[in-house]
Deep mutational scan, measured.
Amino acid sequence: MTEYKLVVVGAGGVGKSALTIQLIQNHFVDEYDPTIEDSYRKQVVIDGETCLLDILDTAGQEEYSAMRDQYMRTGEGFLCVFAINNTKSFEDIHHYREQIKRVKDSEDVPMVLVGNKCDLPSRTVDTKQAQDLARSYGIPFIETSAKTRQGVDDAFYTLVREIRKHKEKMSKDGKKKKKKSKTKCVIM
């Protein structure tokens, strides 16, 4: 069974824990209790493949930012979460993405942009803004509501699919490099 290491990042209060708990335990946590770091595991079937999701729910508070490099190193894919009623959390996505790329030393890291709290009427981040940002990053965008469960499975499952595509691409690139290195030079 394939294991996928997913990391949920975003500013404090955007609903990272609520999304994760909704996926794992099928219930909505409405009281806000700032996370330092929590880890969850769940076995699911995605596109006919049974897999184990190892999900790291991270601290959004700035005082825990020193811990970010460590979990970013171990993560295979990242859910970059903002709240649709919090423009600052949307603007912060850029910083999370840049930090992930720096730590992973790669421009090509599996990510999904997630606009959470889409059940709320007080939207300050337009869907088109988020779609445009995701398009500019070359990553999928999904709106979710941890409260109603809308888009929750889709967000995590899409990230797994992005990781699969990335692994497939990397193995193809690896095979191309191996083929090239088999060419021999004969000096007579």
Score class of each variant (00 low, 15 high):
Thr2Trp: 02
Thr2Gly: 13
Thr2Ala: 11
Thr2Cys: 12
Thr2Phe: 05
Thr2Val: 06
Thr2Ser: 13
Thr2Gln: 14
Glu3Ser: 13
Glu3Ala: 15
Glu3Asp: 08
Glu3Tyr: 06
Glu3Cys: 10
Glu3Gln: 08
Tyr4Cys: 09
Tyr4Asp: 10
Tyr4Glu: 04
Tyr4Gly: 07
Tyr4Lys: 05
Tyr4Trp: 05
Tyr4Ser: 12
Tyr4Ala: 08
Tyr4Pro: 07
Tyr4Phe: 12
Lys5His: 08
Lys5Met: 00
Lys5Gln: 01
Lys5Thr: 01
Lys5Glu: 01
Lys5Trp: 00
Lys5Cys: 01
Leu6Lys: 00
Leu6Gln: 00
Leu6Val: 07
Leu6Ile: 12
Leu6Pro: 02
Leu6Asn: 00
Leu6His: 00
Leu6Tyr: 01
Leu6Thr: 01
Val7Pro: 00
Val7Arg: 14
Val7Met: 06
Val7Leu: 02
Val7Thr: 14
Val7Cys: 14
Val8Gly: 00
Val8Met: 01
Val8His: 00
Val8Ala: 01
Val9Glu: 00
Val9Lys: 01
Val9Trp: 03
Val9Asn: 00
Val9Ala: 03
Val9Gln: 00
Gly10Lys: 00
Gly10Glu: 00
Gly10Gln: 00
Gly10Leu: 00
Ala11Met: 09
Ala11Tyr: 02
Ala11Thr: 02
Ala11Cys: 06
Ala11Asn: 03
Gly12Phe: 02
Gly12Asn: 02
Gly12Val: 04
Gly12Ile: 03
Gly13Gln: 07
Gly13Trp: 02
Gly13Cys: 10
Gly13Met: 14
Gly13Pro: 05
Gly13Ser: 05
Gly13Asn: 08
Gly13Val: 04
Gly13Asp: 12
Val14Asp: 02
Val14Glu: 03
Val14Phe: 02
Val14Met: 06
Val14Lys: 01
Val14His: 02
Gly15Gln: 00
Gly15Trp: 00
Gly15Lys: 00
Gly15Ala: 00
Gly15Phe: 00
Gly15Val: 00
Gly15Met: 00
Lys16Arg: 10
Lys16Asp: 00
Lys16Asn: 01
Lys16Val: 03
Lys16Thr: 11
Ser17Leu: 03
Ser17Met: 04
Ala18Lys: 10
Ala18Glu: 09
Ala18Asp: 15
Ala18Thr: 08
Ala18Ser: 10
Ala18Tyr: 02
Leu19Met: 10
Leu19Tyr: 05
Leu19Asn: 11
Leu19Phe: 10
Leu19Val: 09
Leu19Ala: 14
Thr20Asp: 11
Thr20Arg: 12
Thr20Lys: 13
Thr20Asn: 14
Thr20Glu: 13
Thr20Gly: 14
Thr20Val: 08
Thr20Phe: 10
Ile21Asp: 15
Ile21Leu: 15
Ile21Asn: 15
Gln22His: 08
Gln22Ser: 13
Gln22Phe: 03
Gln22Ala: 03
Leu23Phe: 10
Leu23Gly: 15
Leu23Arg: 13
Leu23Thr: 11
Leu23Ala: 15
Leu23Ile: 05
Leu23Asn: 15
Leu23Asp: 15
Ile24Glu: 15
Ile24Gly: 15
Ile24Met: 14
Ile24Cys: 13
Ile24Val: 11
Ile24Ser: 15
Ile24Leu: 15
Gln25Glu: 07
Gln25Leu: 04
Gln25Pro: 15
Gln25Tyr: 01
Gln25Val: 01
Gln25Phe: 01
Gln25Asp: 03
Gln25Cys: 02
Asn26Gln: 05
Asn26Ile: 04
Asn26Met: 04
Asn26Lys: 12
Asn26Ala: 14
Asn26Trp: 02
Asn26Thr: 04
His27Arg: 09
His27Phe: 07
His27Glu: 11
His27Thr: 09
His27Leu: 14
His27Gly: 14
His27Val: 09
Phe28Val: 10
Phe28Ser: 11
Phe28Cys: 12
Val29Gly: 14
Val29Tyr: 05
Val29Leu: 11
Val29Asp: 10
Val29His: 09
Val29Cys: 11
Val29Gln: 12
Asp30His: 03
Asp30Val: 06
Asp30Thr: 05
Asp30Arg: 11
Asp30Glu: 09
Asp30Phe: 08
Asp30Leu: 03
Asp30Lys: 10
Glu31Cys: 09
Glu31Tyr: 06
Glu31Ile: 07
Glu31Ser: 10
Glu31Leu: 06
Glu31Gly: 12
Tyr32Asp: 15
Tyr32Ala: 13
Tyr32Gln: 10
Tyr32Phe: 12
Tyr32Met: 11
Tyr32Lys: 10
Tyr32Arg: 12
Tyr32Glu: 13
Asp33Tyr: 07
Asp33Cys: 10
Asp33Pro: 10
Pro34Ser: 11
Pro34Val: 09
Pro34Phe: 08
Pro34Arg: 06
Thr35Phe: 10
Thr35Ala: 11
Thr35Met: 05
Thr35Tyr: 03
Thr35Ile: 03
Thr35Arg: 07
Thr35His: 13
Ile36Arg: 07
Ile36Asp: 07
Ile36Ser: 14
Ile36Glu: 14
Ile36Asn: 15
Glu37His: 02
Glu37Phe: 08
Glu37Ser: 07
Asp38Thr: 05
Asp38Glu: 10
Asp38Arg: 07
Asp38Ile: 02
Asp38Pro: 12
Asp38Met: 04
Asp38Leu: 06
Asp38Asn: 10
Asp38His: 12
Ser39Ile: 05
Ser39Met: 08
Ser39Asn: 11
Ser39Gln: 04
Ser39Tyr: 05
Tyr40Asn: 15
Tyr40Glu: 13
Tyr40Val: 11
Tyr40Leu: 11
Tyr40Ser: 13
Tyr40Ala: 13
Tyr40Gln: 15
Arg41Pro: 14
Arg41Gln: 14
Arg41Lys: 10
Arg41Ala: 07
Arg41Cys: 08
Arg41Ser: 10
Arg41Gly: 10
Lys42Gly: 10
Lys42Glu: 08
Lys42Tyr: 04
Lys42Pro: 08
Lys42Asp: 07
Lys42Asn: 08
Lys42Leu: 08
Lys42Trp: 02
Gln43Glu: 12
Gln43Trp: 02
Gln43Val: 06
Gln43Phe: 01
Val44Glu: 12
Val44Ala: 11
Val44Gln: 10
Val44Lys: 08
Val44Gly: 12
Val44Tyr: 03
Val44Ser: 10
Val44Asn: 03
Val44Cys: 12
Val45Arg: 08
Val45Met: 06
Val45His: 07
Val45Lys: 11
Val45Asn: 03
Ile46Glu: 03
Ile46Arg: 03
Ile46Gln: 01
Ile46Met: 05
Ile46Lys: 10
Ile46Val: 12
Ile46Phe: 04
Ile46Asn: 07
Asp47Thr: 02
Asp47Phe: 01
Asp47Ile: 01
Asp47Val: 01
Asp47Met: 01
Asp47Leu: 01
Gly48Gln: 07
Gly48Lys: 08
Gly48Phe: 01
Gly48Met: 01
Gly48Leu: 01
Glu49Tyr: 01
Glu49Arg: 07
Glu49Phe: 04
Glu49Val: 06
Glu49Pro: 02
Glu49Ile: 03
Glu49Ala: 04
Glu49Gly: 05
Glu49Lys: 06
Thr50Gln: 02
Thr50Gly: 09
Thr50Tyr: 03
Thr50Ser: 07
Thr50Met: 04
Thr50Trp: 05
Cys51Gln: 03
Cys51Thr: 06
Cys51Ser: 05
Cys51Trp: 11
Cys51Ile: 12
Cys51Leu: 04
Cys51Tyr: 14
Leu52Gln: 15
Leu52Asp: 14
Leu52Ser: 15
Leu52Trp: 10
Leu52Asn: 14
Leu52Val: 14
Leu52Glu: 15
Leu53Met: 07
Leu53Pro: 02
Leu53Gln: 04
Asp54Lys: 14
Asp54Gln: 14
Asp54Glu: 15
Asp54Leu: 01
Asp54Cys: 04
Asp54Arg: 13
Asp54Ser: 11
Ile55Phe: 12
Ile55Gln: 04
Ile55Ser: 09
Ile55Met: 10
Ile55Leu: 05
Ile55Ala: 10
Ile55Arg: 04
Ile55Glu: 13
Leu56Gly: 14
Leu56Met: 14
Leu56Gln: 15
Leu56Glu: 15
Leu56Thr: 14
Leu56Ala: 14
Asp57Glu: 12
Asp57Gly: 06
Asp57Tyr: 13
Asp57Ser: 10
Asp57Ala: 05
Asp57Lys: 01
Asp57Gln: 06
Thr58Ile: 11
Thr58Pro: 12
Thr58Asp: 13
Thr58Gln: 08
Thr58Trp: 04
Thr58Phe: 04
Thr58Gly: 11
Thr58Arg: 06
Thr58His: 13
Ala59Arg: 13
Ala59Asp: 14
Ala59Lys: 10
Ala59His: 12
Ala59Ile: 03
Ala59Cys: 09
Ala59Phe: 06
Gly60Asn: 12
Gly60Ser: 08
Gly60Val: 05
Gly60Arg: 07
Gly60Trp: 03
Gln61Tyr: 03
Gln61Val: 13
Gln61Ser: 12
Gln61His: 10
Gln61Arg: 08
Gln61Ile: 08
Glu62Thr: 08
Glu62Ala: 07
Glu62Arg: 06
Glu62Cys: 11
Glu62Asn: 08
Glu62Trp: 02
Glu62Gly: 11
Glu63His: 07
Glu63Asp: 14
Glu63Thr: 04
Glu63Tyr: 05
Glu63Ser: 10
Glu63Ala: 03
Glu63Pro: 11
Tyr64Asn: 15
Tyr64Glu: 15
Tyr64Gly: 15
Tyr64His: 14
Tyr64Arg: 12
Tyr64Met: 11
